[in-house]
Measured scan of single mutants.
Amino acid sequence: ETFPLDVLVNTAAEDLPRGVDPSRKENFLSDEDFKAVFGMTRSAFANLPLWKQQNLKKEKGLF
């Protein structure tokens, strides 16, 4: 299941849709939104070091 970017960005855990893991908001973006937000594919993002993934998520309001 995916959700629009505005539902996930800068949203407190208690305000997220049911079933969304607040530590993994990026997994609930569509592939198109994911690429638009991070400028890379999911596989490229997954290959980044964890610290870099976290920094990007913070920068984009998805942490």
Rank of each mutant, 00 (worst) to 15 (best):
F3E: 04
F3Y: 15
F3T: 04
P4H: 04
L5E: 02
V7R: 13
N10Q: 10
N10F: 04
T11K: 12
A12Q: 10
A13G: 10
E14N: 11
E14A: 12
E14S: 12
D15S: 10
D15W: 07
D15N: 12
L16E: 04
L16D: 04
P17D: 04
P17K: 05
R18N: 13
G19F: 09
G19L: 08
G19D: 08
G19E: 09
V20E: 04
D21Y: 03
D21F: 04
D21V: 06
P22S: 09
P22F: 03
P22I: 08
S23K: 14
R24L: 09
K25A: 08
E26G: 03
E26T: 03
N27Q: 15
F28S: 12
F28T: 04
L29C: 05
L29T: 01
S30G: 05
S30D: 07
D31K: 04
D31T: 05
D31V: 05
E32C: 07
E32Q: 11
E32R: 08
D33S: 06
K35C: 13
A36V: 12
A36H: 12
V37E: 02
V37Y: 03
F38K: 00
F38Y: 02
G39W: 01
G39H: 10
M40S: 01
M40P: 00
A44K: 09
A44V: 11
F45N: 00
F45G: 00
A46L: 12
A46C: 11
A46E: 12
L48F: 03
L48T: 01
L48V: 01
L50C: 14
L50G: 09
L50W: 10
L50H: 13
W51Y: 10
W51C: 13
W51G: 08
K52W: 10
K52Q: 14
Q53E: 00
Q53F: 00
Q53W: 00
Q53G: 00
Q54A: 13
N55I: 13
L56F: 03
K57P: 00
K57L: 11
K57H: 02
K57M: 08
K57S: 02
K58V: 11
K58P: 00
K58N: 07
K58T: 08
E59A: 11
E59K: 09
K60Q: 06
G61H: 05
G61N: 06
G61T: 01
G61L: 06
G61W: 03
L62Y: 10
L62N: 03
